[in-house]
């Protein structure tokens, strides 16, 4: 049976409940097996996971950006990855995107120009970010937004969303789990 790895990128322990547990709850409801680890504890054995979800973290927490070399495994991992908010920033930085500033907090409409893990046309999403990362060369963007909100690697199954699908778009995560 497939096993999913959920990666916690929060510096503060108390943020587990806000940024990781909601994702665990969605996976529990789907009925899929998973385990959770902090990104600083990732090791080669974790490359055996069948899928990986990298969670987001709080507005003030940019610790993971300073330790971006901890995510080098993304270059060699061959199976599907979903990065959420901070997790998407991690993916884009590993593929040489550049850090930019753009604060969006709350509910926003995003227009999906192509279907993305079940998201189509205009959808309401929950944003919680001060930063974004420019679109890396190997990736394509799925929304008509100025900054990349939903991206996928052109050849690999590596997905990233800048918004938090666990708040208003839980089906996006379910669709990733069922890929």
């Amino acid at each position: 049976m497939s096993k999913i790895l959920i990666i916690n990128i929060s510096k503060e322990r108390l943020h587990y409940y806000e940024f990781v547990k909601p994702i665990e709850d969605i996976l529990k409801n789907v009925g899929v097996e998973f385990y959770t680890k902090h990104y600083t504890k990732f090791n080669d054995k974790d490359l055996k996971a069948d899928k990986i979800i990298i969670c987001g973290t709080s507005l003030m927490d940019n610790d993971f950006i300073d330790k971006i070399e901890s995510f080098k495994w993304i270059e060699v991992y061959k199976k599907p990855i979903l990065g959420i908010c901070g997790g998407m920033q991690v993916i884009s930085l590993i593929f040489n995107g550049e850090l930019g500033k753009e604060s969006e907090i709350g509910l926003f409409n995003e227009n999906f120009v192509k279907s993305f893990l079940g998201m189509k046309e205009k959808k309401e999403v929950y944003h919680l970010h001060n930063n974004y990362i420019t679109l890396p060369l190997e990736f394509e963007q799925f929304t008509s937004s100025k900054i990349p909100q939903a991206i996928k690697h052109k050849e690999k199954e590596i997905y990233g969303v800048l918004f938090h699908p666990e708040v208003r778009n839980k089906s996006l995560i379910e669709n990733f789990v069922n890929l």
Binding site: D25, S58, M60, I105, L128, N130
Partner: peptide
């Protein structure tokens, strides 16, 4: 409540302190 949470997030962000919502999305 996204209404409550996002407004408190904005205030904390403006003041430059952390914001913790440990019951967020809880069943």
């Amino acid at each position: 409540s996204v209404y409550q949470a996002s407004r408190i997030q904005k205030i904390c962000n403006k003041i430059g302190i952390e914001c913790f919502n440990p019951l967020w999305q809880k069943d």
